[in-house]
Design a protein around this nucleic acid. Structure first.
Lengths: 139, 139
DNA sequence: CTCATTTGGTTTGACATAAAACCATTTGGG
DNA sequence: CCCAAATGGTTTTATGTCAAACCAAATGAG
């Protein structure tokens, strides 16, 4: 139904997501999906974020972020405390257990990039990213 | 967390899916998502298919196909009958109501392609597809 | 011909996802 | 200062998704 580019894009995303889930399981992060990984990844970078900020950077609905963060809380990867300046808001941050995953995460990311770009030259990679950017901006 | 290519791929797919859902709603196909559209699209082409075949061509789990086809049944877009040669199996096909959507579907597909490829030359389109194919094969 | 195994599809349970409604808190116009 | 409107986050509901278990039918080895 859609152009072959979009079918390929869908297939790549599905396969990459499955790859990431398998890698996370292999590194001991059972039961996590890429959306959890996305949250953890952003917390590695920003240290602490509000639910609203997590919603914004991940592109997920705030109710979805509630469910995802609750699961990461249950599993002990994150903690949250009220923002002293705004009692409506939380600061979500990593626990020591969550922080300990950073190394594994960047290793997984590296493995993903290696797999993704196998046999693709640096120039072709840049071409691809440039084309995808332009396409993204078309919507 | 992931290479920018994969982040772009995820974003494009999300936006394209939303675009498709909005276009389907605009053409009177309320409540359908791209997975439904994928099934209908394949039925436009193949006229009738088994659940197993629909699972194979869409890449969705057979239990998911059961749920999606049931909804299309409820909405009156498809019908199904037992395969006389294999009582376990169904033939799923379009109703007149479903068949009437073909024109709208190809129009939507056209609009998607026009939007997707706006400002992208024919050569660049071919480059993109070739690169995406190679990447898909890496997983 | 018998029957263990496989197959096509459904059901069950779990989970991610989003939309809408809700609650408590914050904001800022009057 | 008051309070209507907006905001941050949760809850509820619905749905797509998958894995595992299940059932009925088909298959093919013995």
């Amino acid at each position: 139904m859609v152009g072959s580019a979009l079918a390929l894009i869908s297939a790549i995303r599905d396969r990459a997501n499955r790859f990431l889930e398998e890698q996370m399981a292999r590194h001991g992060l059972h039961g996590l999906v890429t959306s959890h990984g996305n949250i953890l990844y952003n917390l590695f970078i920003h240290k602490e974020m509000s639910m609203k900020e997590l919603s914004r950077v991940t592109g997920k609905d705030k109710s979805t972020i509630t469910a995802l963060v609750n699961k990461l809380l249950d599993l002990g990867y994150v903690t949250r405390k009220r923002d002293p300046e705004d009692q409506r808001s939380y600061c979500v941050s990593l626990t020591p257990k969550g922080a300990a995953m950073e190394k594994a995460f960047f290793q997984i990311s590296e493995e993903l990039m290696t797999t993704l770009y196998r046999g693709i030259s640096e120039e072709e990679q840049q071409q691809l990213v440039a084309l995808l950017k332009r396409i993204k901006d078309n919507f």
